[in-house]
Amino acid sequence: MSSSRPVLEIRDLSVAYRTPSGDVKAASHVNLSLHKGEVVGLCGESGSGKSTLAYGACRLLRPPAVITGGQVLYSGSRTGTATALDILRAPQRDLRAIRWRDVAIVFQSAMNALNPVLRVRDQILDAMQAHLRLPREEAHEKTAKLLDLVGIPRERLRSYPHELSGGMRQRVMIAMALAADPEVVIMDEPTTALDVVVQRDILAQIVELKEQLGFSVLFITHDMSLLLELADRIAVMYAGQLMELGDSADIKVAPAHPYTQGLLRSFPSLHGARRDLTGIPGSPPDLRDTNPGCPFIPRCEFAVPACAEVDMTLAPVAGSRGIGHVTACPIVTPEMAKVRVPTEGVRS
């Protein structure tokens, strides 16, 4: 998988928000690649810059956002050229063609984006005609097929959005994203507002569709437990920077960064024995702070003076057998997490 060229490769991407009091660095020097057929999970708290990174890579951020450096290389099968296309340097025409057709996005709370006064079918038709320039009959047929694909019965085609449940509306948005057979689908918390049963149903559907159609998924969420089950690889983001990246099995068995370790101790589990839960004390970081070194210092239990001089580059995890398992923390190793003294958690 890793031998071939990635479909989407984010290289050293930095995004900032221009404010009168200076730039807020929402993402800095992020490297992340997405291979064909792969599900990469992007995990972080609100304000960690995970959405900014994904939207920035597609240049969908509104002012005052500005991309301050980096490359976003897209090499889908339809680009036609031997070299990858840099989205950050692509002309407007190419950019418009890539978005949605090659790289589709399911936005956070997208299900509320449906127009309440138009039938679901007409909205999908509209989007399809506007972007694919399909003739009416063909678009009709494709719409029906798409809704079949995401498991919406045909008789619901004529419904208005308010007649559908939240899960159904989210399915409609996924159908819309898949309308142009994209090669990359970016999903920003697509199931956060849904109940667990519906969530699982939709996720299973997404994976099934992915296997069937062969697209890649960048899945953004704050719920680590979900990613461990769903993603092939997981990228952990904090304060606009990648903290750790690796196969989900490696992340689960041998988390290297203290933040990742904290995330893994944050969710109660239903299955198996009760675990020791501590969570991550403290509040999410303020991106206006420009202290050097690791941004996790104030909440880190392993913090030492040397942390303030860490340059935050990702290096292979010492002692991890995973290839491509990298961490930004040169101090803590997976072993250190295992020997830590258990503290009192909820009802333990």
């Binding site: 699982r200 719920d223 437990s225 461990l228 089950e229 198996g272």
Partner: peptide, 15 residues
């Protein structure tokens, strides 16, 4: 059964 289960290696959610 619907709650995320990180230990479930045979999960249908896994590629």
């Amino acid at each position: 059964a619907s709650a995320p289960d990180p230990d479930n290696l045979g999960s249908v959610l896994r590629s």
